[in-house]
Design a protein around this nucleic acid. Sequence first.
DNA 1: TTGTACGCGTTATCAC
DNA 2: GTGATAACGCGTACAA
Lengths: 343, 343
Amino acid sequence: MSKERPTIADVATRAGVSKGAVSFALNGRPGLAQTTVDRILAAADELGWRPSNRARSLSVSKAFALGLVITRDPGVLSSDPFFPAFIGGVESVLAPRGQALVLQVVAPGEGEEAGYRRLAQDGRVDGVFLSDLRHNDPRIDLLTSLGLPAVTLNRPEVPSPFPAVCLDDRPGTIAVVQHLVELGHRRIAHVAGPQDFVHATARTEAFVSALAEAGLQPAAIETSDFTAIGGIESTKRLLALPDRPTAIVYANDRMAIAGMGAAQQAGLRIPDDLSVAGFDDSELAEFVHPGLTTVRADPHAFGEAAARTLNQLIDGDGSAVPDVELPPARLIIRRSTANLEDS
Amino acid sequence: MSKERPTIADVATRAGVSKGAVSFALNGRPGLAQTTVDRILAAADELGWRPSNRARSLSVSKAFALGLVITRDPGVLSSDPFFPAFIGGVESVLAPRGQALVLQVVAPGEGEEAGYRRLAQDGRVDGVFLSDLRHNDPRIDLLTSLGLPAVTLNRPEVPSPFPAVCLDDRPGTIAVVQHLVELGHRRIAHVAGPQDFVHATARTEAFVSALAEAGLQPAAIETSDFTAIGGIESTKRLLALPDRPTAIVYANDRMAIAGMGAAQQAGLRIPDDLSVAGFDDSELAEFVHPGLTTVRADPHAFGEAAARTLNQLIDGDGSAVPDVELPPARLIIRRSTANLEDS
DNA sequence: TTGTACGCGTTATCAC
DNA sequence: GTGATAACGCGTACAA
C-alpha cells in the first residue's frame, strides 16, 4: 500500500497512454477509441485514482464550491428555522456534483462586504447565494463589480443581472388576514420585520392590501426586528392601545411565540382574548400552547432550486438563466386563532 | 485597468527580482535585504497583488479551510441554537487568517461517512470539527484512517488521538436538580436525548447522580430525541404516571418548551402544578410563558476555542495539542420552576 | 538572490 | 479518427 496518492501520471503509465488521454477519458470527451477509454478507466479504478481538486481548481480556475454569506448577529440567527433547511436543500444538489458549500456568518455592517470580497478574491467559490435581500441592496453592485455569479433569493427591486429564485410570501400573508377576517376580526395589527428587508416589507404590504381588500384598515403596524424580545416589546405596545387589536399577525414565528407569551403574561387568553398568527411554521409553532397558526414555506426546496439555478448560471454559456418561481407559502391553521365571537 | 489578475511573476518583474524573492518577502522569511523586501512589498501593493489561494493550495498541499459536518436531519437541526453561535465563533478565528469554513449537513446514516471521506479525499479542508459525539463513535477511527486532523467537541470515551475542547454539561444539570430539590421537589423526572450521544448520556448521568446526592431516585427517565414532538410524547407519558412527577428536567429547551405546551394543554399550570427546566437557554426560553428555567453554555466561545485548537493541531509540529476546558454551563432560573408548596 | 523543478490536471497544437 | 506532446495556471522550495 503506497501511502502516496496516485496522480494522473500513474494512471497514464498504467494504461500505457499519455496524461492527456486520461483526462479526455475521464471527462468523457470525444477523440479516444472506446477500448482505450475502457482501459484507462479500468486503470484509474484499480489505482483508486480521483483527480485532485486542487490541481483542477488551479487549472480550470474554478473552485467547485458555492458560497453563502449569512449577515446576521449570531443571536438573531440562532433558532432561525430557514437556513438549516435551506442549506440542507443546497447540499442535496452540491454533494452529488462534488461541490462544497462555504459558509460565512458575519455581523451586519462592516463584515459583510469584506466577506464577499474575500470569497471572490480568494477564489473560494464560483458563485454565491444572496439572501435576506434589502432595499437598495448594495450587494448587487458589489457582486457585479467583483464579477462573482450569484442568485438572489427572491427578487431585489434594484436592477439585477442575477437570476432570482422566488418564493412569494404574500399569498400566505394574505391568507392569514382573510382567515382572521372570516373569523370576525376587525381590529387586526401587524408586527413587521425590519423594513430594510425586502421580504419584511413584502409581508407588511401584503398585510395592508389584504385588509384593504376586506375594507379594513390596519389596527396598527409595529416595526420590529424578528427577534423574540422585539416581538414582546411590540406586543406590549399593541396591547396597551386604547382600542386593543383582537388579532395580531406577526412577520415570523419567533416574534409570534414570544408575543403570545407576553400576552399570556399580561393575563390575556389566546385565542379567546387575542388571536395570534406567525410566519415560518418553525418546529415549535405546532407545539407551543396554543398551537400557532402560521404560514409554511419549503426552505429545503428553496435551497435545491437556488443551488440548481446558481449552477446553471455558472456552467452556462452567457445566455440568461430564467428566474424560478416556487410554490408559495401556505396557511397552517392551528389553535391560536379563533372566532371573535368565541371570546 | 487590466482585467487580468496580477501574478507573482508580475510583481517580480516590477520589483526587478525573481519569483522566489517575492515569495520570501511575502512570507517574511529571512535571507532578503530589508530594502529588497520593501521594494517587493511596494510593488505588490501597487499592483494589488494577493497570492492565489488555488496555486498555494496546490503547491503546499493545504486547503486553508476547515470543515464541519453536521449529522442531523434538517428537521432536527432547524431551531437548534447551538450551531449558529458555534459557527460564529469559528468564523471569528478563521476570517482573520483567511481560512474558510466548509459546511456539510448530512442526514444520519449513510451520508455521514461519505461526507468526511469527500472532505478528505477532495482535499477540501485541513481538519474538521467533530460534534455530537456518540458512543463508540466510528468517526474517530474513520478520521484517523483518513489522516484528517480533527478536534472533538467534548471528550469521546473511545481512545482518541485528537485534542478535545470540552464544555462540561454536568455542572449545569446538577445545578438544575439541586435547584428543584431546594424548591421541595421529590418526584423529579428526566426527558433525555438519544442515548447514543455522549452529551445526552452525560446529562442523564449528571441528573441521576445529583438526585442520588440528595438521597433521591429519579421519578422516571424518558429517552427522547431532542425534538419538540419527542418532548411532547415523553411528557405525556410522564404525566400519565400513577405518581406524577412534580418536576421535569429536559435535556434541551426544545423538548422543554414543547413539553410545557403539552402539560398546559393537559390542563396543568406551570409552575404551580409542574416545574419544568430545559437546557441551552435558547432565545425563546426567556420569552415563552412562563419563562423557562434552563442552563446556559457559551457556544460562541466553544467555536472560537475549537477553531483555535484545530489550527494549533494543523500548524503544529507533531507535538500533542492540549485539551481545552471551557467554563461550564450555568443555571438560569426563571418562572417555570417554583416551590412545591406554592401549588 | 536567482533559476528551476515541482504540485497535478486541462487543453491547445501536432503528428500519424 | 487517435493519440502524444507541451504549455499553462501560480506559488513554493531547494540547489546553485
